[in-house]
Design a binder for these strands. Structure first.
Lengths: 225, 225
DNA sequence: TTTAATTTGTGAAATATATCACAAAATTAT
DNA sequence: ATAATTTTGTGATATATTTCACAAATTAAA
């Protein structure tokens, strides 16, 4: 029996609840892949056949809207992707694309179901993470729609700084257009706001490189909308 | 041992997976309540202590936004409410209020956890419903933000007609202001669109009573935004 | 390296929706 | 039943954001 999952450095909190035997079973039914930036790991419309575990890297969840592509959220490893796709419907309801070179494990759906059914602690961790996802989407719902563009751009920048990179100086992994799709605004408006923030000394921008110079001011903009 | 849950006519799909003993245990640790229209069954900010099962009736999930109350979704029985509240955080992240006289079971959180841990089919059903919730919020995310007000109002009306009342002739359970909060638009704009729809012969409106006269046209408006 | 393609920034004009204001209608309380 | 309160409809005006247009800058391809 393989012990590669047992030894995995990127083991999820849920997987750490599995027995050695269960980890062996998992190892035999999952495939680890290194994906290049821009690779689609889950395609909207395709048959949903696997759970994906983003071991390392960054991904976006996106969905085809009536007019343009809508980015639902940016996901930082480690996290399971595609549970709603696999359990919610026969075909994928959304796509997932990696934003930087990433490592992903594709887990056979029946194996995943077997683990859910045979290890209540594993199932419980999965339930916890689904609940947290739902809370997150509720919050997003309330902030994204009730703030105007400056507040939303500030939100994205703070999220990148705090959650994704843990630094005030980072290279944003998405284009201006993608920022716009994330906050439901036009590319041009996002550009303008970014320029404005730079003019006001809040940011230092050089292409995709962004440095937050005045985080307090940015927070204030986020809070006041 | 009480058999009231075993005999419950409104038993959830998840609960139907429970053994007779487990249903007895559930019956001893849950309280069924009849709530009058407008009652808050879960208050944002309060300690999350129970799972609520909306047995019969209709409820809204809402959250305090930076400026006004945001309605996240309208929930029709039967459905569990508050799982993300109870599992995601110590305090409630959102409120739930019934929109018509409803019946709700409050289930002790430890009992719920016990059932999750001891009945994998129950847990699996809960996972399924959480996944479906997430898919729903993704879809909402894409439609609500990419359509303008006519498309959004059409969406709400079609949802009421198809999912909630299964009829083209219904009394809408929320005020114009609440419709506005649901689609992130102003009350006045919602009023105007409703009047416009009536003028165009799509609806017949009399206060909260709404009759859809031309559903095809309404669908078209929904689809074309 | 040069060319082609894509991404980005910015002004001016167009537009959808919000806000303000107030009266009419409907609901609730007395 | 009457008064008080809340909800609703609608016009006029204000405003944030989009759209269009095009040049500059960046990135990818030949």
């Amino acid at each position: 029996m393989s012990s590669k999952c047992a030894e995995c450095v990127f083991k999820s909190k849920a997987a750490s609840k599995l027995t050695f035997e269960q980890l062996g079973h998992l190892a035999e039914n999952c495939a680890s892949v290194t994906l290049k930036k821009g690779s689609v790991l889950m395609q909207q419309g395709a048959l949903s056949s696997n759970i994906a575990y983003l071991k390392k890297g960054l991904a976006k969840i996106h969905i085809k809207g009536p007019y343009h592509e809508q980015i639902i959220k940016i996901i930082k490893a480690p996290e399971y992707l595609g549970l709603p796709n696999t359990f919610g419907d026969k075909i994928n309801n959304y796509s997932a694309t990696v934003l930087e070179d990433s490592e992903v494990c594709f887990i056979d759906i029946d194996t995943f179901k077997y683990l859910l059914a045979n290890n209540e602690k594993f199932a419980y961790e999965i339930i916890l993470s689904l609940c947290n996802n739902e809370l997150g989407s509720f919050k997003k719902c309330a902030t994204r729609t009730q703030k105007q563009i400056r507040g939303n751009v500030a939100d994205v920048l703070l999220d990148m700084s705090n959650r994704v990179y843990d630094s005030d100086d980072f290279e944003i992994p998405i284009s201006r257009e993608e920022i716009a799709n994330l906050i439901d605004k036009s590319r041009e408006s996002v550009s303008r706001v970014l320029s404005e923030f730079e003019k006001d000394g809040i940011l230092k921008i050089s292409g995709k490189k962004i440095e937050i110079l005045d985080k307090e001011k940015l927070k204030l903009i986020f809070e006041t909308g």
